[in-house]
Design a binder for these strands. Sequence first.
DNA 1: TCCTCCCGCCAAGCA
DNA 2: TGCTTGGCGGGAGGA
Length: 821
Amino acid sequence: LKTPLKQVATSQLVLTERQPDCQPLTTPPKPKETPPADPWTPTSNLKMLISAASPEIRSREQRRQLSDSSSEVLQTKHCLQEHLLGDEYEKSQPSRKEKSLGLLCHKFLARYPDYPSPSQKSYICLDEVTEELHVERRRIYDIVNVLESLHMVSRLARNRYVWHGRHNLPQTLLALKKVGEENKYIQQIQTIKKREYEHEFDPDSERNEEVASSFGSSEQSEMSFVELPGVEFRAASVNGRKYKSLRVMSQKFVMLFLVSTPQIVSLEVAAKILIGEDQLEDLDKSKFKTKIRRLYDIANVLSSLKLIKKVHVTEERGRKPAFKWTGPEVLPNTQDTKLEATSTTCSPPISESISSKEQCSKALFPSKGKQNFTRHSSLIKLVKSIENDRRKIQSAPTSPVKISASTYQSLPVFPNTIAQFPAITKHQLEGQSKTAEEMQMKCALTSPEAVPKPEPSQQSALSQPLGVCPASHSSVSPVILPHPQSGVSYAIYLHPSQAHTVTTYSPGFMLQPLPCANVTGIKSNNSQVLNKITTEEGDTQRGPDEPTKSLAAEERPETKSETSSQRCLKRSQALPENNLIKRHKSDEESLDTSLTFFPSGYLIPLTHCTHGSKAECSTKEKAGVCSLQHTAYSSPITGVIPMPASELKTVNIPAFHITPLNIMLSPNSIAAAPVLSNSCLNSSSTSSAPNPSSSALNFMLQHIGLIPAGVQVPANPVLQHVPVSSQSENISHSSGSTNVQEGKVIEFTFYSPINENNFLFSLQPSAPKEPQEPQAITENFFRTPGGPNTESALSGNSDGTQRTSQGTLYIPQRKLEVSED
DNA sequence: TCCTCCCGCCAAGCA
DNA sequence: TGCTTGGCGGGAGGA
């Protein structure tokens, strides 16, 4: 045995690649007839490095040595076996990890550039690859199939593929996302999660029927391989094993990430969905295991592509392997896509022409007759929500709805919803970007007089909210958003550390998502900010690195100019800190210099009052005198009412259309949980008249996922038990691991600091509190300030410019942990 | 013990 | 008919 002349650590991979049969760290045996291109000389090492960088050189070298290599390897192997004892030989073999598909895929990918120039097509010869990487052909197929599913390669002929690199990736992901939405993967995931909570996985026939019904829609639209225009699919077995192929599985797997929020998919759920789509073949364990195996194969390749990353989701039932999407965010429309592309350094700009888009959609929906992009499902949902909301407002008096424990159990989807509520906002973003016709339709469904149809000029003006930002922003300056219809502007005070997202505002659309604006950053870098919308929304598990994100509400504003809204802010600043404006321990330094008013919020335009005329509201607002019946609609009263937690009892939420901002609840501090309303909650202090505040509240809570659809929160809930908030401190931040814990108290505040027409709603996690009596965990989720009397909650200062309502949302304790390996 | 996934059999499909 | 492609599941390494 000869010692290599030089063997540097950095060349280890290359060496392994070249000679996988030799243990990389041991002295490789050397045949007596050493060829001139001995890999163990510095020169040959250099050659190998060059070769690794240049496929052409490598191929040439490879061809030259091809004839010798096989016999060499065999000889080497024999040589090793001869020189080493059985155990030693076994040890000398590369470990399982070194032979993993992921590593192999890394090697494979290293051979080709991410973005090959279109003029220079890279061809992949499977024989060469298998020889070069010293792997079985079979393994290469695994890799190639997944790459093919992403259109990173395409099959040219037998044994021959073309390397496209990542050029097609954005388009592919966009296409996959759309198909995923079409196939209602979100619902499927939710159905599966629901069943998980209800029963253990049990492949009985009854269950299969249930599954069958839940997957009915996807069966009808049995999906084949999603192609892109110009990237044809020429699989060898196009007709036969097409539907079970790794390609299709891979695409579906990716779709699951693209449609779900947060973009974490457990293998179990993915496998069940894939099984479900396979014509509901027996959900026996062997099939399930097989799917899981294949998903691991796919996941390994996707991980090598850095599209996903392995994590673990810990729930009550244990720790589950899952994967988290780490690839580029896919935004639904061209505009967003372009923004995304420009702000994603790893991707080249997407130049997607309309025609290619049409082609793409045709390719994506070949089996369906009508695949026009008519109305987005989220938009329909919104319309329904609004309709329901209005109906609720106009009909039955609000009475508490008790949710039984069984209901609690039957709402397994809900726990994830709160973690996903940023995605709801995102979803609305998508809806917002739909056509003007849709907007008008939506407007028509709402109060027409309150919501004037947007004119194009206004639209365009309003689509640039950032452009009207004050020229200079301190960390606490408001972001002014114009509102031409009302002649007033919206001002949003945000903390730069926790506000990252900005999107357009269109007044005709009643439920505009208006994510937080980074006051310091929005002017300079819109696209980046926009890009962050999705990446941060999708990752609700974030937290350790963003300790201040949700805590900015605890800070106070610092005003600069004397706009009306800012006067309000100033006023509030002068007020003593109440229980809702707390200082967070970890945030003390930043508090010294930067003060922020709202962490985020629901922008509630009071002009959209559905009951009573605007004038009426306005008058009453100014008068500061609100009848009980109108309390909910009417005026904000000046000043933040300082209220200790012990006094928090009631809340009144104006029954106006709520424009959700991006509510930046601390990802650590909340997690999805069913919310149990308290049957004891009474509304005796309110009149029996329909109380729109409950509708708005319900709408808002449903909308952000704090309560499931259909569940009603009483109009004027009164705190009867103190929620347990001791869990607030139990946020663990271990490196690489983020816990999302429930058992939190989320306090919320309604402000109207902007003007009489607008409300802001903000949520923030409560600061750690002393442990309180635990008996009411499941009975209370809601407590509000101001005492049992509704008016007292709304009354405060009477200068008619500001009012605050505060309350607390209790998230029952439950743990959902996502940890990264 | 369970997770992870390598490995290779073998059948379908293609040239 | 031989070769390519790839579904599939046993079973072993690793945590």
